[in-house]
Design a protein around this nucleic acid. Structure first.
Lengths: 124, 124
DNA sequence: CTTGAATGTCGGAATTACCAACATTATAAT
DNA sequence: ATTATAATGTTGGTAATTCCGACATTCAAG
C-alpha cells in the first residue's frame, strides 16, 4: 500500500507558504486584493484569506493567478526544479523513445515500472 | 480595471480537462482510485468526482498528485512550456526513468533499442 | 455467465466559503 | 503628528460544497 502524505498541520503550512508567495507576487505587481479578486471573480475577503493561508485555493484559481502574476504554477506550489527538469542522460533516452509507436511506448513504460518496483519496494 | 477571467462554464470545462489528465495519469501508473485517495487522505468518491470534473481540486492536492504521478503540476493545469519539446507520455516515461539506477537505465535503453528494431522490421 | 474488483451515484450530515458590516492597518499629504 | 483615504483583516450568520455511507453500475478475468 502507498504510504499516505500530509497531515492537517502540514496542510496548514503548505497553505501558508502558497499564500505568502501569492501575496508577494501580487504586491510585486502593485495590484490590490480588490483588483485581483475582481479578476478572479471571488470576494476580496476570500483573497485575503487565501494569502494568509485560511482558505483553500482551487487548482484552476491558482492557474489563473499564475497567468496574471506571470509565473509558473510550479513556482507557487514550491515545485522543485529537479522534478520538472530532466537529467541529461534521461533526456537522451527520451529522444530515442520519441519515435516509438504508442504501443511500444506503453510496453516500455510497463517495463520501466517493473524495474522501478524491483528496485524500490514501497517507497512512495 | 483588470478584465475578469472565467465564467462558470469555462470553469466546468477546465475542471473536466484537469480531471481527464489526472485520470489518465493514474491509470497509466496502474493505480486504483482507492489507492490514490488513501494516499491523499480524501474519500475515494471524492477522487471519482475530481476525475469527472465534479469536485474542485485544491492546489495542494494537485501538488501531491503531481508528485505521485511524477508529472509537473503545470502539465495537469495545461501549462504549455516543456510540453512542446517532449510529448507528454514521453516526458512521463522519462520522469519515471529518472529515479532508476544506472544499470537499470542501461537495461531499459537496450529494451528500447530492441523495440525500435522490432518496429522498423515491419516497415522495411 | 458469474464473480469480485473498480468505479459511479445518491441523500443527508458535516465542513467550508461567501457575504455584509465593521475594525484595523498602511499610506500619503499637510 | 494628525488627518484622510485606501487597503486589508476579522466576525457571525447563511449559502454552498464536501464528506460519508450505502447501494448501483461497469469492468476484467475465469
Amino acid at each position: 500500500m502507498i504510504v499516505p502524505i500530509g497531515n492537517d498541520s502540514e496542510d496548514d503550512e503548505a497553505r501558508r507558504e502558497l499564500g505568502d508567495r501569492l501575496r508577494e507576487a501580487r504586491k510585486y505587481l502593485g495590484l490590490t486584493q480588490e483588483e485581483v479578486a475582481g479578476y478572479l471573480r471571488i470576494p476580496r475577503t476570500a483573497l485575503s484569506d487565501i494569502e494568509s493561508g485560511q482558505r483553500r485555493v482551487e487548482a484552476i484559481e491558482l492557474t489563473r493567478l499564475a497567468r496574471l502574476y506571470r509565473q509558473s504554477v510550479g513556482y507557487f506550489t514550491g515545485e522543485d526544479e529537479m522534478s520538472a527538469t530532466l537529467p541529461p542522460d534521461v533526456a537522451h533516452l527520451a529522444r530515442r523513445v520519441a519515435d516509438l509507436s504508442m504501443e511500444d511506448r506503453e510496453e516500455l513504460g510497463r517495463f520501466a515500472e517493473y524495474l522501478r518496483a524491483r528496485a524500490s519496494k514501497d517507497t512512495l
